[in-house]
């Protein structure tokens, strides 16, 4: 791989457009990454078209349409997969397939919100710390050391336990733990970039710090940020599901995958589909983002291969 990349560097014309094309070419060759991308595309489409894939159903008792993932049917509880219920039904007779499909919305939402917000905080903190160094850097790095001393999931548990359950609180709980990762990566990149000559050149033509960081430094550390964000999506979805699993996250009856596992756990010995499918969905999505991240790492920055 590295040999090819050397060749690419040599042949690469200095145009930005062709640089992207180059990344795409390397990315396309990476089967793992393409499979990951495929999984993510399916997931996003599922989330967008959840109401088409699992449309609302008419409920006789209610006399109106209701979300398919909410409709109970106790006479058809814990049914094994069939033509009517592809993934079977849960202990309330709700269609597990509908619940898994609609659960993708919650997981994706948590993932994207957590990653974007923690990325913004992490990037700003990392850039300041790396660019200015000194006291700001010292203080920030100590805080990060402290945060990293608490295993991620335990930090999320402690925060979620303090704030209480609920979607927003889960996002906060998971998001805070994700900031150090971004901050460290950006700080590292900025530290190396800061010393390079084009920064000196930009400074000499009178660029201010704001412009230097925003225009010259950050665009040059996009690669590690994108990789961290992709892997971060996997981590955030996993942590949110874990919180829901121990009763600290999104609460039932919302069709959150982790919460479904928690609810279904009592029945798993007699009725495996109740844990098989929601958990399988988490695994697939996390795998998709991890594969994508792995492929992006190879395509964007061969030197980061670690």
């Amino acid at each position: 791989m590295s040999d090819n990349n050397n060749v690419n560097t040599r042949k690469r014309p200095p145009k930005k457009k062709s640089q992207m094309a180059d990344v795409w070419r390397r990315f396309k060759r990476n089967i793992t990454a393409m499979v990951g991308l495929f999984i993510i595309i399916i997931l996003v489409l599922t989330a967008i078209f959840a109401n088409v894939i699992a449309p609302p159903v008419f409920d006789d008792r209610l006399g109106d349409y209701m979300p398919s993932y909410m409709q109970q049917n106790l006479r058809n509880a814990n049914a094994f997969p069939s033509g009517d219920n592809w993934f079977g039904t849960d202990n309330f007779g709700r269609d597990i397939f509908s619940r898994v499909v609609h659960g993708s919305r919650i997981s994706l939402q948590v993932g994207f919100v957590v990653v974007s917000v923690s990325a913004i905080f992490g990037v700003i903190l990392g850039a300041i710390s790396g660019f200015y160094g000194g006291i700001a850097d010292n203080v920030l790095m100590r805080i990060i050391d402290i945060m990293l001393a608490i295993p991620n999931i335990l930090l999320a548990v402690a925060i979620a336990a303090a704030l209480g359950a609920g979607l927003i609180n889960v996002m906060i709980a998971v998001g805070i733990g994700a900031i150090p990762g971004f901050a460290r990566i950006v700080r590292g990149s900025v530290l190396t970039l800061r010393e390079q000559e084009f920064i000196e050149a930009a400074r000499s033509i009178g660029a201010n710090d704001y412009r230097l960081i925003g225009r010259h430094i950050l665009p040059n550390c996009m690669a590690p940020i994108i990789i961290q964000a992709t892997m971060g999506l996997a981590g955030a979805i996993l942590s949110a599901a874990a919180l829901a699993f121990i009763g600290l996250g999104v609460q039932p009856p919302a069709p959150e995958w982790g919460a479904m596992l928690n609810d279904g756990r009592r029945f798993m010995r007699e009725f495996w589909p109740i844990v098989m499918f929601p958990g399988g969905a988490i695994a697939m999505v996390v795998l998709g983002f991890n594969m994508l991240g792995d492929g992006l790492r190879d395509a964007l920055d061969p030197r980061l291969k670690k």
Binding site: A241, F245, G280, A283, V286
Partner: peptide
């Protein structure tokens, strides 16, 4: 490939599937 899969499987789900 298996490395990526094992990293991605939530251990709380893996545990339940192993029990099943």
């Amino acid at each position: 490939i298996f490395g990526l899969i094992f990293v991605s499987i939530p251990n709380f789900w893996l545990g339940m599937m192993l029990v099943v």
